[in-house]
Design a protein around this nucleic acid. Structure first.
Lengths: 350, 350
DNA sequence: GTGAAAGCGCTAACAC
DNA sequence: GTGTTAGCGCTTTCAC
């Protein structure tokens, strides 16, 4: 194995102790809050720490405490949608805020191809982090099993598909009210008097995709199957689906797209085909991503979910579970999954 | 200090050694590549590892090797532009790819407000990571000094403003040819016969903003100052600047915006003010971010930089420096800063 | 309150 | 080749 770094040696507890004329134990106490140390001594130690620029070695500390003050965020998005889609970005931001206020570090793990599962599995098992936030599971994703196997405390982003299939009393997730949101969107289109309402779905191997389609069907149980086209949450997929729908049902007068990105692509394709929005075709999206929905032409009517808040919530749930683990007590009120609310934001497209 | 996690104890080297009937040293050898171990023994150990589901404890390993196989990515963007701007996203993706192929972990550190500098400083000093990739420095950013103080091997994203000001022979960065790119853009507008070419600049406390403005001035050294408005790379800022320019010089016939995001906002504002693009006003952006430039109406003519590749390059430089540090030899060819090339992508807006 | 001492799990000399 | 041993830097009983 390759030699590690050999830079200027950083000062150790030992060095501080010597300079301050106390024992290592005392220094350790001061560094960790200083309870039970006489004020005068504490001050002397603090000076020594300052003078030497001492910073605790985290590896040594973790070795004994078994804490890392770090949390992994795992995003399993083989198509690398991660960074083109503001959705993740916003969630990450919420998570980042919450974690940093708890002095915990965010460690981002991206799973791009199947080989990466190995690496991520090793990482989680390696005890680098105290817990994990896992996102955007697809069908048969090996991640949940991995996390469980190594006893990793986990909160999922979005409802995993197999909830209930196993003994998942322990499973915690945060999700938007996808189905309710879709219902809201489609009901709005109905209330506008639209008769041939199509939908561009998300990927149907993810619960968010399926749930939004279910919401559409709740309102239109006897709809024409030709009015349903599968997308994948991206602009490319959305554009393709819109073109398909137009080919199948040139007379459609409304579209509910399961993401703003897809809706924006739909607007474009509709324009290319000479349709006016909303006069000829009304369009509703899902997400209300500022950077997309407010900037389309016309601005998008869409279902708003507070994505950043979901991220914050996930982090908070995880931290709470972690805290409970530490204090062996029987869980007073074990955190449970949360479904966050949505609302319709009406702009010009429908 | 709070007790750490107390889950089921993970198997240790010791346990594997016992099960395989060998010493800890042998197991360690096998786990780390297995050189110098008889094949039969190696196999026995591997079985034991498998059976117990053994995974090395990283903290213990780091404690002795002083390696983390992890790299910090520090993004200092108080305005939280990080995640609304695909720019960072793409760089991260490049970095992530490169690091994971070197089996190194990406640890993302976001600096949102000034208090975070402390936390990040502690993190870097704490020896969590082998090196750091630092982004989007503003004027007087304390990060470079912090990194240097703790002897952190660092590669910067974008040229730090104070290059040359100190003894920075050691400083390595990756940057786009901002100035050359801006020149390309403005020359294109000139070649189109435009006479009153305005520019929306980036934030002028960042070198990328300043350099792009310099490029504009290279081509138009005697331009009217009223044709220059300061933006901040965001849509909001770009829109504001465009409105300002229109108010000052209603007769302008071209705009070079220093980012695609700002250019897209400019298109919108121009449309609102009844200008046709490109007939009345030609617009050129900078970045060529697929998700923005190709989707505007009309599609944006812009300066293309390969952002993902820059990320990859940064990671590669860092890894190389890290490797050199390990093998104490005098640096054979110390990696130096890199300026990546740009080219003009002509679409419909100019 | 403070110090002495025992590890946390691992790697790397060094013997054999 | 393989085993023995001495730490890496820290926290945490346990005496005093």
């Amino acid at each position: 194995m390759q030699q590690g770094r050999t830079g200027p040696l950083r000062p150790t507890l030992e060095a501080v102790a010597e300079l301050a004329g106390v024992s290592r134990a005392t220094v350790s106490r001061v560094v960790n809050g200083g309870v039970g140390v006489r004020a005068s001594l504490r001050e002397r130690v603090q000076h020594a720490v300052e003078e030497l620029g001492y910073v605790p070695n985290q590896a040594a500390r973790t070795l004994v405490t078994r804490r890392n003050d770090a949390v992994a965020v795992v995003i399993a998005e083989p198509e690398s949608r991660v960074f083109s889609d503001p959705f993740f970005a916003q969630q990450l931001r919420g998570i980042s805020k919450e974690l940093s206020s708890a002095d915990s570090q965010l460690v981002l793990l991206l799973v791009e191809d199947t080989g990466d599962y190995q690496r991520v599995g090793r990482y989680l098992a390696g005890g680098h982090v105290d817990g994990a936030l896992i996102f955007s599971l697809h069908q048969d994703d090996p991640l949940p099993a991995m996390a469980r196997k190594v006893g990793m405390v986990t909160v999922f982003g979005g409802r995993p598909g197999w909830v209930g299939a196993e003994s998942d009393h322990d499973l915690v997730y945060v999700d938007t009210d996808n189905r309710g949101g879709a219902r809201l969107a489609v009901e709005h289109l109905v209330s506008l008097g639209r008769k041939r309402i199509a939908t561009i779905t998300g990927p149907l191997d993810q619960t968010s995709g399926v749930d939004r389609l279910d919401g559409y069907r709740d309102v239109l149980p006897y709809g024409d199957p030709a009015l349903v086209a599968e997308g994948d949450f991206t602009q490319e997929g959305g554009g393709r689906a819109m073109a398909e729908l137009l080919a199948r049902r040139p007379d459609l007068d409304a579209v509910f797209a399961a993401s703003d990105l897809m809706a924006s692509a739909a607007l474009r394709v509709l324009r290319e085909h000479g349709r006016r929005v909303p006069e000829d075709v009304a369009v509703v999206g899902f997400d209300d991503q500022e950077s997309v929905a407010a900037w389309t032409d016309p601005p998008l009517t869409t279902v708003r979910q507070d994505i950043e808040d979901m991220g914050r919530l996930m982090a908070r749930l995880l931290l709470r579970r972690l805290a409970q683990e530490g204090s062996e007590v029987a869980r007073p009120g074990s955190p449970t999954s949360v479904i966050t609310p949505v609302r319709l934001v009406v702009r010009a497209s429908a």
